[in-house]
Amino acid sequence: MAITSPGVAHSAPNGRTSVDARRRRPDDTKLALLFILPAVIGLVVFYFWPLARGIWLSFTSWDLLSPSQLIGFANYQRMFADPVFWNAVQVTLWYVVLNIGIQTIVALVIAVLMQRLTQSTFVRSLILAPFLVSNVVAALVFFWILDFQLGIGNQMLEWIGLDRIGFFTSEEWAIPTIALVNVWRHMGYTALLIFAGLQAIPANLYEAARVDGASETRMFTGITLPLLRPILGLVLIISVIGSFQVFDTVSVTTGGGPVNASRVLQVYIYENAFAQFDFGYASALSVAMLAILVVVTFFQYRITRAGQTDLN
């Protein structure tokens, strides 16, 4: 272990080792670089290069079959004037708000329940089960359950005397339905992340609070929430990024419809690229998405102060 060797050398009784350590240090840098190299190559080849190429493509007109042509900012001009793009931004935001809002609250409740009510590993692991189902399978299963005519979900609505709802086939319901399907799938995973954060809160704080006669709610708002903030911030950043990139659930169920009601950004990008082979415009849309995510993540990070903890 090259990295720990200076420390080991230091603790040796021999006085000459510190000199050795100093002499060896440049070697360590080279070795470290060597170790990092595969990851750097991976990062450059599979991340930076496609990113750079994607940004470059956004300034071109390219249909795959004929050579690409530089067209300057034309794709961006078209994007800003494209009502479908703005609609996609709106639809995506609406999805993120619903998805993240509900998911975070539900996950927080589940995580607290996991910590305060049960010690059973079995029960705790059960909560993660929906996350083990693939996105496409989950979407298809709900697509059938909520089918207007044949779905058992709508059958049950009728039994309790309500009207059938076109969960995936009406403009008002499409996005809320998709958001809730993904809440169902991801809440266990999010709860697990929050649960890990809860474990890090020292138990003696709760003991002290209990001695002072604090109620369960008081402990939640006074101890759990403030100390959970950095983890919650991190969870939010991660899940918001994922949420903005919703694609498969939409693609499997509504395909962006009815009309444009669920045409989220990723779906619109996909259609432009792979249905209309307009890779230049699709790349411009992707860059817009990247910009949105950078801005959103930056503000989230600042607002939640996810880098700092109040534990010390």
């Binding site: 599979f46 991340y47 990113l51 994607g54 991660i238 990008i269 992707s286 990247l290």
Partner: peptide, 14 residues
């Protein structure tokens, strides 16, 4: 989820 790189999904796919 958790991957920034999917942001450039289209570019990668292209």
């Amino acid at each position: 989820r958790r991957r920034w790189r999917a942001v450039a999904g289209t570019a990668v796919a292209a």
